[in-house]
Amino acid sequence: MSTVRSKAVVLWTVVVLNLILLAAPTVIILGASVTTGNIIAFPPEGFSLKWYGKVFASVVLREAFVRSLWVSIVCTVIAVPAGTLAALALARYRVRFAKLLQLYLLLPFTVPLIGAGMGMLMLFGELGILGELWPVGLACCVINLPFMIWAVLASANALDTDLENAAANCGAAPLQAFVTVTLPAVAPGIITGALLMFVLAFNEFLVSLLLTDANTVTLPVSIYNSIRNVITPDLAAVSVVYILVATLAIALLDRWVGLEIFLKSK
């Protein structure tokens, strides 16, 4: 009995520590966003929603928000099929030069973002596609692609190979087996990956900075630029708006498919 308790105590201590680590900046930002003062501070000076007023009144921020949505959608739409197929290939098929391929697919994480951004600035400039928004989505997809691959791989590893074989043995055509057996089995990974890709694209500022201009600036770039100049509570207010939108999205997801899907395949 005591070992069971010691296990619970140790595990929960670490979990609570984690929760504090994860929540602390969020709480601070929430608090700082309602200050009446001109600087980000916690505890806030007084209470006012003036910074929210400023955020919602800003046409620049609103346009940037819409652009960021578009960038995130482009990123996710490209990443989901590409990442899912690659993950299934790695998990299901014998591929030549597998180790090298793994290292190749890890390039998005081993190339420093500034290098990646500079390279894409030159490449996209040469191709004449700078100044448009979709290349920014493509760029966000490329630099975060390993997340998509691994999220699906994590599910694919938990998947029972026998099921697919059984389907094939029962005469199911390859596509049919893929759609009816494989895809549902890795759905949790696809959803986790898609969400990650969307959110990461929505927050990407370093590569996007090099690929956008005043007419295509995205929200994280706009936030980054203002932080470089002067740090005012409207940045906290923007972040809180993010969190509210995120909470809503997560609540809807829970309602529709259940959050359990992140952990368990059907």
Partner: peptide
């Protein structure tokens, strides 16, 4: 209309253009 990119960070974009 303002572009608030840092001068250092705009420079490579300008040069490339």
């Amino acid at each position: 209309k303002y572009d608030e990119t840092e001068d250092n960070e705009l420079q490579p974009k300008l040069w490339a253009a």
